[in-house]
C-alpha cells in the first residue's frame, strides 16, 4: 500500500494490487473504489463550513456523512471536517501528480 497523504486525523492510501484506495479514519479503515472516492470528495466539497459557525444553521457544529452507499456512517465535528476536506484535496493533488510522472 502506498501512503498518499496524512492529515492530522486521517490518512489515505492507494492499493495497487486491489486497484482501490483506503482511508484510515483512526478507529476504522474504509476501502474505496475510485468512484466512491470521487463521491466522498463531492460530499466534502458540498459541506459549507460557514454553517458550522452559525448557531441557526448548524447548532451542534457536526456533520453526518454516509459513505459507500450508506455502508458507513460518520459523525464529524468541525475540526475533523476541515481535516478531511484537506485530506481529500491533497490526496487528489498527489494522484494528479502521480498521473503526470507515470511514464506512458
Amino acid at each position: 500500500m502506498n501512503l498518499l497523504y496524512q492529515s492530522y486525523y486521517f490518512s489515505s492510501y492507494q492499493c495497487d494490487r486491489g486497484r482501490c484506495f483506503y482511508i484510515d479514519f483512526g478507529h476504522k479503515e474504509v476501502k474505496f473504489s475510485f468512484c466512491q472516492l470521487l463521491s466522498l470528495r463531492q460530499k466534502l466539497q458540498k459541506i459549507d463550513l460557514n454553517s458550522h459557525f452559525d448557531k441557526e444553521l448548524n447548532y451542534n457544529g457536526i456533520e453526518i456523512l454516509s459513505l459507500c452507499n450508506r455502508e458507513h456512517l460518520f459523525v464529524l465535528d468541525t475540526y475533523q471536517v476541515i481535516d478531511l476536506k484537506q485530506l481529500l484535496k491533497a490526496t487528489f493533488g498527489i494522484l494528479e501528480l502521480n498521473s503526470l510522472v507515470t511514464p506512458s
Binding site: N2, Q14, D16, R19, C20, F21, F34, C35, L38, Q45, F92, L95, E96, N98, S99, T102
Partner: peptide, 18 residues
C-alpha cells in the same frame, strides 16, 4: 505506484467538476 486514476477515468477530475 500505479496510475489507477487514469485507468478509471478518461477525463481530468477538475474538468469533471466544471
Amino acid at each position: 505506484m500505479k496510475d489507477i486514476v487514469r485507468q478509471k477515468i478518461g477525463i481530468n477530475v477538475d474538468i469533471m467538476d466544471m
